[in-house]
Simulated assay, not measured.
Amino acid sequence: MWKDWFFYTRSQRRVIVLLLIILVLLLFLMVGEKANKDKVEIAAEPLLIADSLYCKIEKERQERERNYKNRTYRKNEWTAFEKKKSPDTVVYEVRKPKKDSLRFPGQEKYSAGIVIDVNSADTSILKKIPGIGRVISKNIVSYRNRLGGFYDVGQLLEVKYVDSTLLVWFQVKSDVFRKINVNKASIEELRSHPYMDFHKAKAIVDFRRKRGRISGMSQISMFKEFSDGDISRLSHYFTFE
C-alpha cells in the first residue's frame, strides 16, 4: 500500500499529509478533553466532601444555638434550681456568692455581738464568722504568722479579701506574740517581716557592723530608709535586748 504513495502527484500527496495532520490533531484534542473532564471530576470530589462536612458542622452549630437560646441564666442567687415552663424550655437561676462567705450544710456561724481575739483564733473559729470562709481564714492566719501578731484590728485590712465590715467581729485581747531582736536578727529575718524590705534590713545590718548595737527606735528613726509610719508600726515588733 505504501508503494502506491509514489504514484500520487505532488499535490495529492500534500492533501493526504494535511488530512493526516488534521486527524492527529483531532485525536489529541479528544484525548485532552477527556483527561480534563476526568481532572474536573476528581477535583470536584474533595469539594463535595468538604461541602458535606461544612453543612454538617453548620447544622450542629445552629442546633447548639437553638438549645442555648432556650436557656436563660440569672446570676442573682448562689443555689441553682430549674423551673420547667414547657417540655423544651428550662430556666436556670444562679446565686452568686459574696466573696468567701458560702454556707455549707452543717457549717455553724456566729450570731451578731460575738467578738473573738484576732491573735488566738484558728481557721476553724474564723470560718464561723459570717463573711469568712476557707480562703479568708487561711489568709488571716498566714499574715498573722508573718507579722508575729496583730496589735490593732485595723491591720486586718492589710489581709487579702478582708474589708471593714468584718472588723466588728474582732478585738486584740492578747499582745504580739513574736518580736524581732534588732541586734541579733539576720538580714533575711529582718526583711521577711511584712513591714520591712531589703533596703531597711540592710540599713540596720550595716549600722550594726559599723557602729555596734542599736539602742532603740529613736536611733532607727534617723535612718533615711524608715518613714514615721514605719517607725510607728515596727515599734510593736522590734526589741533591742
Rank of each mutant, 00 (worst) to 15 (best):
P46H: 04
V31G: 10
L26N: 08
R103F: 07
S221L: 05
G149N: 03
D163R: 13
K109P: 07
S218C: 04
T165M: 00
W169C: 05
F238H: 07
T72N: 09
C55Q: 14
K109I: 14
L25A: 06
Y143V: 02
E158D: 09
E188Q: 10
L26Q: 09
F170T: 04
A203P: 13
K128E: 15
I114C: 06
R95L: 09
E33M: 10
P105I: 11
G113C: 07
G216D: 12
I140H: 01
Q155D: 02
M222A: 10
D122M: 05
M196T: 04
Y161I: 02
L23E: 15
E241I: 02
R233L: 15
A44N: 14
G32D: 04
P130N: 03
N70V: 00
K84E: 13
S137W: 01
T89S: 11
P87D: 04
R14P: 00
G149R: 01
S227A: 05
V24E: 03
D163P: 04
Q62T: 12
L19H: 15
D4T: 08
E82V: 06
V153P: 10
G154R: 12
E158V: 05
D117F: 09
I49V: 15
Q12F: 03
L147F: 03
F7S: 09
G154E: 06
S232K: 15
Y110K: 00
S52C: 14
F226Y: 06
D197F: 00
S218L: 06
S111T: 11
K3P: 02
K200R: 11
L27Q: 13
V182T: 09
E77S: 12
W78C: 05
K98R: 14
I116P: 15
V172H: 04
D152W: 05
H199W: 09
M1Q: 10
E188P: 08
D206R: 08
R211C: 01
T123G: 00
D152L: 01
K202D: 04
E82W: 05
D197V: 06
L53R: 15
P130G: 01
S137D: 00
K200G: 01
A121T: 00
K39V: 02
C55S: 15
L18R: 13
Q62S: 12
F6T: 10
I57S: 14
P97M: 01
K34I: 15
R13L: 01
K99M: 03
K109V: 03
